[in-house]
C-alpha cells in the first residue's frame, strides 16, 4: 500500500485515542457523527453509485436494534452470558439486516428511480406500523429496555461506531475502484449497455444493497446497546432515514468523502441548533429546509462544488445541469 493511500490511517489512529483525551461531550458528539457517517455512506453506496435513492435506510438501523434487543430479552442463554451475549446479539442484529436486505432486494430492486425511493420509504412506514401494532412483542410505543449488564460503555460504543464508519468508507472507496464498483457505475449510466457487456444488473444491485444494509444494522445494534433503550421514534424515525440522505447530498453524493463532509456539517448544525441557538422554528423544519435548498441550488454537494474534479461530476448520482430531453430515436 502506498504512503498516500495509507494517509487516512493517521487521523483514524488519532480519532481512536479520542475517548482518552477528549472531553466527554465531544466524545458523545463524535459518536453520533460516526453513526451518521456510517448511515450516510451506506445510503450513498446505492444513492451515489447506483442512482437508487433509499429513503428507508433507517429500516435496517431499526431492524438491527430490535433484533439485538429481542434476542437479549427473549433468549435467557444470551442474557446470562453478559457482554458475550450482547456481542452475539449485536452480530445477529447485523446479520438480520443483511439477510433482510438479501430478501428485500427481490421485490424492491424491481423498482427504478423514484419508485425505488417510494418503495423503500413505504417499507420504513410498514416497519414502524408493525412495531407499533405488536406491543406484546416490541413494547409498542413504550419501547424496549435491556438490563444494565448489556450496556455498552461510551468508550466501547465510540470505538465500535468509529470502526463502522471507517469500514463503511473503506467499503465505498474500494468499490469506487473495484470491478464491482465499475459494474455499478456502468449499471447506473446505462443499464442496457451494461447488460450487453455481461453485467448482471440485479446481482450488482443486490450486492450493493446488502453491503449498504449490514453496517447500518450493526450501527443500530451498537446504538441501542449504548443507550439501553429503543423505540420506534428513535431507531425507526423518519429523521433517522432522512439524515443520511441530507448528509450525502450536502457533502457530495457519489464521492467517498462526501458523506463525511456532510455528516460533520449536519452534526455541527444539529449541535449548534440544540445547544447554542434559540430559534423560533423546530429543528426538523431546518433540516427539511436544508434539503429543499440543497437539492434546488447545489444538487452535487459541497465537496463537488469545492473540488470541481471531473470525476466528481461523472460519479455523482445527482441530477445533471439542465439539458434538453433525450431524443426518443436515433
Amino acid at each position: 500500500m502506498s504512503v498516500r493511500r495509507a494517509l487516512p490511517a493517521v487521523p483514524l489512529l488519532l480519532l481512536a485515542a479520542g475517548p482518552w483525551i477528549l472531553p466527554r461531550d465531544l466524545v458523545t458528539a463524535l459518536l453520533f457523527t460516526f453513526l451518521l457517517i456510517t448511515l450516510a455512506s451506506n445510503y450513498d453506496l446505492l444513492g451515489g453509485f447506483l442512482g437508487l435513492y433509499n429513503l428507508g435506510q433507517a429500516s435496517f438501523f431499526g431492524l438491527g436494534a430490535y433484533v439485538t434487543f429481542l434476542l437479549l430479552l427473549r433468549v435467557p442463554l444470551l442474557a446470562a452470558l453478559g457482554p458475550a451475549g450482547s456481542t452475539v446479539a449485536a452480530l445477529a442484529g447485523g446479520a438480520a439486516a443483511a439477510i433482510s436486505a438479501v430478501l428485500l432486494a427481490y421485490p424492491l430492486l424491481r423498482l427504478r428511480g423514484a419508485y425505488f425511493a417510494v418503495g423503500t420509504f413505504a417499507l420504513l412506514l410498514l416497519l414502524r406500523l408493525t412495531v407499533d401494532n405488536l406491543p406484546q412483542l416490541t413494547g409498542g410505543s413504550h419501547g424496549l429496555y435491556v438490563s444494565a449488564q448489556h450496556y455498552l460503555s461510551l468508550r466501547a460504543a465510540y470505538l465500535l461506531t468509529l470502526s463502522l464508519a471507517a469500514a463503511s468508507l473503506l467499503l465505498n472507496a474500494l468499490l469506487a475502484s473495484s470491478r464491482l464498483g465499475m459494474a455499478m457505475t456502468a449499471v447506473r449510466e446505462n443499464e442496457l449497455a451494461a447488460a450487453a457487456a455481461g453485467v448482471d444488473r440485479f446481482r450488482v444491485q443486490q450486492v450493493a444493497f446488502v453491503l449498504g444494509a449490514t453496517p447500518t444494522g450493526l450501527a443500530g445494534a451498537v446504538f441501542g446497546l449504548h443507550s439501553g433503550y429503543i423505540d420506534v421514534s428513535v431507531v425507526l424515525g423518519i429523521e433517522r432515514s432522512l439524515f443520511p440522505v441530507i448528509a450525502a447530498m450536502i457533502g457530495g453524493s457519489g464521492l467517498v468523502w462526501g458523506p463525511v463532509v456532510g455528516a460533520v456539517t449536519l452534526r455541527a448544525i444539529d449541535v449548534a441548533l440544540k445547544n447554542y441557538m434559540q430559534l423560533p422554528v423546530p429543528a426538523p423544519a431546518i433540516y427539511g429546509g436544508i434539503l429543499v435548498v440543497m437539492s434546488l441550488t447545489m444538487p452535487k454537494g459541497i465537496l463537488a462544488g469545492l473540488t470541481r474534479a471531473p470525476q466528481a461530476a461523472a460519479r455523482s448520482g445527482s441530477p445533471a445541469p439542465p439539458r434538453p430531453a433525450r431524443p426518443r430515436t436515433r
Binding site: G113, I238, A285, S295
Partner: peptide, 29 residues
C-alpha cells in the same frame, strides 16, 4: 423546468420531501 423527466422525478422527491418535513414540523410546533 427543462430537465429530463427522470431527473425531475428524482429531484422533485428530495425537494418535496424536505418541504413536507419542514411544513409538518412547523405546523405541529
Amino acid at each position: 423546468a427543462g430537465r429530463a423527466s427522470g431527473e425531475v422525478l428524482v429531484s422533485s422527491i428530495l425537494v418535496t420531501f424536505g418541504l413536507a418535513l419542514a411544513l409538518e414540523a412547523m405546523l405541529g410546533f
